[in-house]
Design a protein around this nucleic acid. Structure first.
Lengths: 229, 229
DNA sequence: TGTAAATGGATTATGTGTAATTTTAGTTGG
DNA sequence: CCAACTAAAATTACACATAATCCATTTACA
């Protein structure tokens, strides 16, 4: 059972997955990846002994990893009752989206003024990959969507804000889980990304920010319709 | 040495301190309070054995509390090298202020529409306390300043955003430490709070938001001048 | 006989002690 | 003054003991 290969298999070949989950603490990174990938879903118990067996270690490192995840808000725990994956509800999604709506324009405005030609090429490459994806590769599509944004924000000077963005994006990922994305939404996402990119290239920063805000709003509306209880 | 009474003595009589530091985990709350109060300052080593003695417990609970604080960004740790209070630099202050500048108007806008008469009275009471404070009670003044904002944000529906605000406010508190506030800045703070309050009472939401933004900006400018290296 | 309370066992969380590896600090010698 | 070595201290991980929680069965009572 002590085998990490299945995790590696699930890992995307893209850079962004590394940036997101790379962590000196293996156990921590594993649990977080498992939550983000929907292996543990909202409300699941995180039993220390079980996790210790799964990750081939003793209980203590597991407890510490869980405490750290608790500090980051991915896990909640009650005294003498252990830890559970945090309750990601419909209300949580609203909250997360609203925080993202504050953060993204802020991070983006810096990018517009400091982007490199090399980075624009990478964005284009991601867009190309999104277009040439098979219809059933929902997970991969969402990864590419996140990577598009990540490429723009990762070098921002405000590392707290970047980390905060990452965290909220991960929560969204966990919330959406394995729910497939409609082809229409996929098409719209690509078009919206294209609009943002072209506004940057054409030196229209105002329009680019607006396009980004609309993009986030569209995503928010789409998911709130899909995840309606 | 196993005595918490000195902590209780330092605790403010006001409500906000309770809200801020109350936590089911005593050790966690203690360490965080110690960081916020400047007992451990930026860069200080957090030696598990020493903390275990201080808080009359064994190493494991200490380690878990530290891990949680690490998850929240108050503590950083290197492998085999233990934990330290996070590096709160001048750049950190800029980052924190920028996040607060995003969050506060967002939280505030909801308050304007949902405030109660009772809450306004409390705000007034806090203002009164600020005015009638002795000139050397810097810490107490800062607590009251924070409480003023806290009263407006604490009931916001977006609990993640509120917690985020709290966290960043705590980092500021740790950064400012025991540095005294100038009397001029104290006077300005009170006037700015009065302006915000009167704009709310006079049903001028637009002006109130603007007053709040200015208030944050003023604080930012003041502290960046004071803490210039 | 049906329902509610109680009891017991199993599972799990929490806290402590200990051994091993690594780091740190102090000291000695060049 | 700097480098290398040594001893003390700290981190890490593990095994164990204790305490709390959960669940199913049994028991008591109406």
């Amino acid at each position: 059972m002590c085998n990490f290969s299945w995790v590696v298999r699930n890992m995307s070949a893209s850079e962004y997955f590394k940036d997101f989950f790379q962590h000196e603490n293996k156990v921590y990174a594993q649990i977080l990846a498992d939550i983000a990938q929907g292996i543990y879903v909202s409300g699941d118990r995180l039993v220390t002994t079980a996790l210790a067996k799964r990750y081939c270690t003793s209980i203590n490192p597991i407890r510490e990893a869980i405490k750290q995840l608790e500090g980051e808000g991915f896990v909640t725990s009650q005294k003498n009752s252990g830890a559970r994956v945090a309750n990601f509800s419909h209300a949580t999604m609203r909250d997360v989206f609203e925080i993202l709506q504050l953060l993204e324009p802020y991070l983006f405005e810096w990018y517009i003024q400091r982007y490199t030609q090399d980075c624009l090429l990478k964005l284009n490459e991601v867009l190309h990959q999104m277009r040439s994806l098979a219809v059933d590769e929902h997970m991969k599509f969402r990864e590419l969507d996140t990577e598009f944004h990540w490429l723009m924000y990762k070098h921002h000077y405000n590392k707290s804000a970047v980390q905060l963005w990452k965290k909220n994006k991960l929560i969204l990922q966990a919330l959406h889980g394995n729910i497939p994305i409609s082809l229409a939404r996929r098409e719209h996402t690509i078009v919206e990304h294209e609009k943002i990119l072209s506004d940057i290239v054409n030196k229209k920063p105002q329009d680019a920010v607006q396009a980004l805000q609309q993009h986030i709003n569209q995503g928010r509306q789409y998911w709130s319709k899909v995840l309606v209880q």
